[in-house]
Amino acid sequence: MRTLVCSVAIVAALASLAGDATAERRHRGKPSAPVSLTAKAERTATGWRVVVDAAPTRAVDDVTIEIDGQATRFGATAARTARHLVAPVAVAATGKDVVVTARVAGRSQSVIVRVGAPAPVAKPAPVTVRQINGVNVAEVRQ
């Protein structure tokens, strides 16, 4: 089995804010879900599957993992104990973005896993920079 063609493991965003005390002081983020969520795509003999691990940061009554809209509910889960879920996904030749969500303690976190062909690169809208009252304004028109 070949592993991991086009997806990445994604860790809870706030974990990336770890650093020295000064940097932490400067970065006051939004409320997050008490869960560390990773997801990746794997090619199988017959197609593709998405592999998810969701580990709550504290003991919780319930962990729910959704892959591409299909929810699987786990029961009470100890802190830092990962719930593991694997689901096959049907993918057209053009590829697909699969949404993976973990719901824990009334909050949720989502990541997107690209499965199959890479996503087409979106063409940025043309921008004209104008000086308005001495400030650079990036004007978008359609």
Binding site: A12, L14, A15, L17, A18, A21, A23, E24, R25, R26, H27, R28, G29, K30, P31, S32, A33, P34, V35, T57, R58, A105, G106, R107
Partner: peptide, 28 residues
């Protein structure tokens, strides 16, 4: 509400006071 939450931190700094060490907060 997410936007206003972050502006709330700005309010603390400019109008009030914060001694927050920063970092993650998940309700625990």
């Amino acid at each position: 509400t997410v936007i206003l939450h972050e502006i709330g931190h700005f309010f603390e700094d400019t109008i009030g006071r914060s001694d927050s060490p920063g970092g993650g907060h998940d309700g625990s």
